[in-house]
Structure formats: C-alpha cells, structure tokens
C-alpha cells in the first residue's frame, strides 16, 4: 500500500541537488591539492618506544638535529618533551634557502603539537609514534615551530626556530 510519496518542494529539491554538487566540488578541490599538488596529511611512519626514544644511542632522537641526505635535502629529527623542560630539541635549526627538509618528530612523554609557521607542516606529536612531513623553504627568513597541544604548564613557551639563510 506504499503509494506514499516523498513530497519535496521543488525549491528545496533544487537546493538539495545544488548542495550535493557543491560538496562534490569541495571534494574535488581537496583531492587536487592532495593528489595533484602533493599537499598530504601525515601517514604512519614508524613506531618507537617513548620510554627509550630519547636515551637509546641507536635512536636518532637521542641525538636530535639535521642530517644532510643529499645536497639541499635534509632529514630533521626533532624531539618534543615536557620533562624536564618544555622544549623541542634542537631549539634551533639552520638551512640554506631552497632546501627540502623532512621533519621526523616524536615525544618522550606526553602529546605535543608541532607547527612550523607559514608552512603546511602541522601535526600531532604522539609518544610511541613518529610524525613526518616535508617542506621546501623557498623564502629566506626565520620560521618558528611551536607546540600546539596542551602538554602541561610550559606549553605556551615551547617553541624553536629555523633560520633559512639566503
């Protein structure tokens, strides 16, 4: 006996169709940026033991800093912690302009955030996990990296800086 029909006002039907198309367009734009322009979100990189990641000599984060992989290409191992002090190690980095730097960041204690100002490097730093994103520094200057997740009293003073030399 299902002669019951959905009665939808034609204006509202058109609005729903329009909304659907609009959302699809946003999805396309996002996909272009992700798959066409290489602007991607972090992917699982590595698991580590947060209890030893900062102290085990075989762990790169026991000696955080830049490693030149090839001319103009660097890996940056950054350790975030709140104990004993709220800081990123190293607190300073320097690369020449045009360098591509891949950041590998982890925490030896609580969750932190890592955001390099004026770049798309912005991710969670979770003990037990390694977060990785890459950035090419096209413009010289100073770029702060700041903690963006509550990690205790010193969260608001936790930052470092990258100097990109001309």
């Amino acid at each position: 006996m299902s002669t019951q029909q959905m009665h939808i006002d034609p204006y509202e039907r058109n609005w729903m169709i329009f909304s659907g198309i609009l959302l699809v367009l946003f999805a396309v734009a996002v996909s272009v940026a992700a798959f066409g322009m290489g602007i991607q979100v972090p992917a699982p990189e590595q698991r580590v033991d947060p209890r030893t990641v900062a102290t085990d000599p075989s762990s790169p984060w026991s000696n955080p800093g830049l490693r030149e992989v090839s001319p103009g290409k660097y890996d940056a191992y950054v350790l975030a912690h709140a104990v004993p002090n709220w800081e990123f190690l190293p607190k300073e980095l320097s690369v020449p302009v045009g360098s591509s730097v891949s950041f590998y960041v982890t925490s030896s204690d609580v969750q932190h955030g890592f955001k390099i100002q004026d770049t798309n490097v912005n991710f969670m730093v979770i003990p037990g996990q390694v977060s990785k994103l890459t950035v090419t520094f096209d413009k010289p200057g100073t770029y702060n990296y700041i903690c963006t997740e509550y990690c205790g009293s010193g969260h608001g003073v936790m930052y470092g800086s990258i100097t990109v030399t001309p």
Binding site: V24, V41, A43, I126
Partner: peptide, 23 residues
C-alpha cells in the same frame, strides 16, 4: 587528520563522509 598513527586512506574516507554529514 594530522595524527601520525592513522593512514591517509582512512582519513580521506572519513573526510568524504564528513562532507556527507554537512548535507
């Protein structure tokens, strides 16, 4: 989206579903 431990494919699927819930 910016958690290290979740793969991009699942993040992308959830983002499409999120566009869906905007509807």
């Amino acid at each position: 989206y910016v958690d290290p431990g979740v793969p991009p494919v699942w993040k992308f699927i959830h983002s499409m579903l999120t566009f869906g819930v905007f509807f």
